[in-house]
Structure formats: structure tokens, C-alpha cells
Write a protein that binds this DNA or RNA. Structure first.
Lengths: 339, 339
DNA sequence: CTGAAAGCGCTAACAC
DNA sequence: GTGTTAGCGCTTTCAG
């Protein structure tokens, strides 16, 4: 059973390939009769256009690239899902690549995607990416790019973000609303923008509620791990018994803090309230369950793809584009670690 | 800056496109001098062959499809990672699709991948897939397929699996080695092969160690959730106080059981030892930490891709293939929920 | 050692 | 309404 092509259908019907092609695409200058005949045969032969030929001719692959820092991660996995499901709906397929949070890998993968002529690229920048030549490379190749989640202000283009400052503000405010007076923050490493923004949101909330900011109860996590959260909890238990609230950079750290404090006989939430960030699966299984900030990866992926598609269409039609930054809403999820 | 093509290089060097093409591919019938000249110019012009044209000519896309029941899942996410990283190494890119554990979606996605002429497909069957016409469809299109994780014995082809019976046997044996005499099993739904196999392994271990099997302490989870684990724990706490060990189908259920039993004042592992399955992140953050079975998704993905590549090559070279089933080893991870 | 030519399968401008 | 033609960019005989 060799492949059925336009030519075969044309020969069988004694038409030209051009007519067959147009008939299948419902061109207005083809007679109804011919269209019917052609479609009937194409159907019965189960004709499928050859995508290689179409791509060559149309100069588009209907495939986009998606670069993710880390696939095994609830939030990013949901982004993959949002992107692929939405793309599918619009006739696009997605090639997913993991950058391992490395600038070097990220750069290589962009080249790889470009060399395969993808129609667009979705990328979340690695934490150690400080140089944007690789992104400019994409622009130079006139391929649409949309930055999502970890973006850079110094790059022009569509962007999808969450408002980390606002989310952190709300998390901290929730602790304040629970009656906390002395609220610690467990932050991430110094550089990434998300860390900085969540720290800023935390400080703003304190200020707006007349709580003096005290840098001695801001703890920098050396790694975003459960163990590191526990280590910091020990420090709190030993040296900072007056703390009555903790806002942690992410759920894994928060879980470590929760378990670590409990080991020292500190009651959650009676003695200390804790809130995390991201709404990972594990925040639903701790005892008590962990309050957190929900950020919908699916929605972010969905919006990211839609913006990319918009840019693809704009470029195709030669429209000029005004770049947008879309914000995905976040929400405080109240569970039992805050009262 | 319009695209540089073979033709441009040929004209610039006053050669034919054929010669340029061959020079770049180091054909033996091209003079060294010409090769050097061509390569130098191609390099300086940053020539990249047009993949659409190559695909059309060579009838291969260098892209494979990967169908996953559920992306947001530690194990499957690791499989994606193993597949894509390995594929990348061999010059292939991966299109990932989620079947939502649905036969209907799975079937559609296969058609989609086939219509895009992928060079091969990797698939883990949805739990409710009982009909294999869609897999036969792939074979009919002469596209290589490899089944991984959730396979079917009635399909011919390469397969990658873990030995669920053996793994469950070892999990149960570990409980026995810990001194447990009355071991419950929290199983999954009736049908999927994994559920059945883990149940069989459990029974075999009991038998080999002279423990009488008792169906009244086999609990069927209606869903693989934390809450369901808790519900079953309550049942155990109320009606089966003599149970001193629990082997759960997966870590999420095990975590529910652990928390549920603790709520009833049952000490883990002193009163009851618990072991889960899959080694999810959450098994490292429970109190006590959860013993479990590790199954390497990365390795499974890696092996799956390699087998697929083997089949692709075999078909290309017209070799006949003898189908293999590769087993990925599992390991008992001893943590603090078993003693 | 090099090149002419054919063709992969499809599309679109243009002619009839 | 339909067909002719001319590619898209690459690879591979086969002839010279």
C-alpha cells in the first residue's frame, strides 16, 4: 500500500493535481461537482497530504518549540500540558526541551529548534541566564518568541507572567490577617527575579500594616529543598522563638519548615502559621495541610501559546505588533497551616 | 538576510548544487580541495540545510512522537525527560502528547502523529484501552512503535516494562523482613495490569513466607488519591487493629494511609509499617519518611528511545527484527515508615 | 572528479 | 472551471 498522493487522485479522476488540490481546499473557482467527486475519492482512499511537501511549499512546520527549565516539577509540567493541549486545538504540535536551568543548554536548544524551522518558540529563562544574545538570535531569524514565567525586562516581545510581588504581598497579608505579628521570610537565592519580587512583596505587606521589617528573620535558602527548609526551621526554633508566621518561597521549603518546627514541639498553626508558594501536590498531604499560593501552570501555558499564535499570524499577515505582557492571576489557598 | 541555500553556495563557487551537497557530506568522490572550499564558505555563511526539503527527499522527519497518559506525574515526567534527552543525543526531537488516560484521545493522537509523518511512536497505553486497532494502524503505516510501562501482551513489538510482580513481591518481603505478620494490601482498580501484577506479587510473597492470604485485608482504592488512602486507613483503624503492615499500590495512597493511621494514634512504624510504590517526591517529606519502590522513569525513557531507534534503523536497512522486552530494574527504598 | 537532470508532493500564479 | 507551469531545497543516480 504505497502512499496516496494528489497525483494519484488526479490520474484516477483524469484531472490535474492543481484542480484536485484546490478542490480539497474548497477554492471558489472549482465546480461543486468536481469538488464532490474529488473529496469522495480522497476520503475513500484515506488521502492525507504529505506534511513534508506542505512545509517545504508553505514554509511552515506547524510545530513550535517549548523550552522548560525543569520538566519534573508540578508547575512546569502543567505548563507543558497547557501549551500542548492548546496547540493541538489550533493544529500545532509541540517539541518540548529541558534546559536544566542552564544558559549553555538553553542556547544550544534554541539553535536546535531554529535549525528545524519551528514556527515559534516559547521559553522560560534559566536562572543563570544573564545574556540575551540567544534570544536576539531567534528574533534575527524572524521566528516569533514568547517569554513565560521567568522573563527578562530587557527583552522586547510578548510575555506571560505572574505578579510575584502581588502574590507574595497577599501571602504575607494572609499571615497578618491571621494575627501574626512577627513574620519570617524564607527566600531563595539572591539573583533570580522571582526571589527578589517575592521578597519585595513581603516587605510591602509588612510596611502597609505597620510591621517593622527585620532583616534578621529573613532566611536565605541555599537550595530549594525539604532539608534546607528543615535546617532553617531548626534555626528558627533555637534562636527566634518569637516568630509566629513564616512565608516561604516555595512549598517544598515550607514543608521542610513545617516538619522542622513540629520536631521542636512548635504547634502549627497555633504557635506559628506557615504559607508556601506554588500549590504543589505535597502541600495537600502535610499535617496540617499547607496554605499556599496557587499559580495555574495550565493557564499560563494556554495563554503563552495563544500569544505566540497571535504573533505568528501577525507576522504572516505583515501586521505590525504591539507587544503585550499578560498576567496570570494567583490566589491564596487557605488550608490548615494558617489560622 | 534571506536564507542561504545549496544553490547560493554553488553559484558563489561556480559549482553545481550536487557537488556542494556531496562535499558537505564528505562523499569520497569529491576532491579534498573542493570540500575545503565548500565547507569554508558554508561555515562563514552559516549554512543550515532546510529540514523541510531534507524530510521530503529522505522521507524522514527526525521527529518521534511520545504519548503519555499523564504528564503531571513524577514518574511520567521523568520518562519524558529520559526520552527527550536521549533522542536529542541521537539527533531526534520529540513531540509529546497526553492521552488523559483515555482510549479515544489516544487513538486521535496516534492519527495526528501519523499524519505528521513522525519516524516512530512511543506509547504507554491508557488504563481503559482494551482494543488495539489503533496500534495496528501504526504498524500498517510501517511506522515503528515501542510500548513502555503500560503495555499489552497481545501486541507484537518491542516493549519496556518493570516487573510489577517482582517489585511488589520485594515490597511485601521487605515488610515481612521487618517482622510484619499481618500485612494488608491497598490495591488499585480491578482492571489495569499493573494493579493485577502488584496484587499477584503481594500474594506470592505471603505464600513463600507461609503467611495465609486473607482477602478481607485487601482494600480496593476507588481512586489513587490521598483522601482515599485516608479513608482506607480509618477502616483499618476501626476494624482491623491486628494489621501490622501495609503495602500500598502507590505513594499517594500510602501517604494517605500513613496520615490516616497516625490520626487514630497508630504509631508508624512501631505499630504498623507502611511501604508505597514509585518513589514520588512526597514520600521524602512525610513524617516518618515513606519506604517505597523506586522505578526509574528516566531510564525507562532512555531505553524506550533506544529500542525505537533500533527498530527505525532495522526497518531502514531492511533487516528483520526480533522483538525484545526490556525490563527496567526496581529497588526497595528503605526509609522510616518500615522498621 | 564534477554536473545535469529528475523528482520527493504540494501550491499558486497565470493562462486558457 | 480547469490545466500548465514553475518552483520550494535537497539528494542521488548516471553520464561525462
Amino acid at each position: 500500500m504505497s502512499k496516496v498522493t494528489l497525483k494519484k487522485i488526479a490520474e484516477a479522476l483524469d484531472l490535474s493535481t492543481a484542480t484536485v488540490s484546490k478542490a480539497l481546499k474548497d477554492y471558489s473557482d472549482i465546480s461543486l461537482e468536481t469538488k464532490l467527486k474529488v473529496k469522495a475519492l480522497a476520503d475513500s482512499l484515506n488521502y492525507k497530504p504529505n506534511p513534508f511537501a506542505q512545509s517545504l511549499r508553505n514554509k511552515e512546520s506547524k510545530i513550535i518549540g517549548l523550552i522548560i527549565p525543569e520538566i519534573v516539577h508540578d508547575f512546569f509540567a502543567n505548563i507543558i500540558l497547557g501549551v500542548t493541549k492548546t496547540a493541538e486545538k489550533y493544529g500545532y504540535l509541540v517539541i518540548t526541551l529541558q534546559s536544566d536551568e542552564s544558559y549553555g543548554v538553553e542556547k544550544k536548544q534554541i539553535e536546535l529548534l531554529l535549525s528545524r524551522n519551528v514556527d515559534g518558540i516559547l521559553i522560560s529563562l534559566a536562572d543563570n541566564t544573564v545574556n540575551y544574545n540567544h534570544i536576539k538570535e531567534i528574533k534575527r531569524a524572524r521566528v516569533p518568541v514568547v517569554l513565560y514565567d521567568k522573563i527578562s525586562k530587557s527583552i522586547e516581545g510578548h510575555k506571560i507572567v505572574i505578579d510575584d510581588q502581588k502574590a507574595a504581598y497577599n501571602a504575607t497579608k494572609h499571615l497578618i490577617d491571621c494575627g501574626c505579628k512577627r513574620i519570617a521570610h524564607v527566600r531563595g537565592a539572591l539573583k533570580p527575579q522571582t526571589t527578589i519580587d517575592r521578597f519585595i512583596g513581603y516587605k510591602m505587606a509588612l510596611k502597609d500594616h505597620n510591621i517593622t521589617f527585620d532583616n534578621s528573620i529573613v532566611f536565605e535558602a541555599k537550595s530549594l529543598t525539604f532539608e534546607e527548609g528543615k535546617r532553617i526551621a531548626y534555626e528558627i526554633a533555637l534562636k527566634h522563638r518569637d516568630i509566629d508566621g513564616v512565608f516561604a518561597f516555595c512549598d517544598l521549603l515550607a514543608t521542610g519548615v513545617l516538619v522542622g518546627l513540629k520536631e521542636h514541639g512548635i504547634k502549627i498553626p497555633d504557635d506559628v502559621s506557615i504559607i508556601g508558594f506554588s500549590n504543589w501536590l505535597l502541600s495537600t498531604v502535610t499535617t496540617p495541610t499547607l496554605s499556599t499560593i496557587n499559580q495555574s501552570g495550565f493557564q499560563m501555558g494556554e495563554e503563552a501559546f495563544k500569544l505566540l499564535l497571535e504573533e505568528i499570524d501577525d507576522i504572516k499577515k505583515g501586521r505590525d505588533i504591539k507587544y503585550k505582557t499578560v498576567e496570570i492571576p494567583t490566589k491564596v489557598i487557605v488550608r490548615n497551616s494558617t489560622k
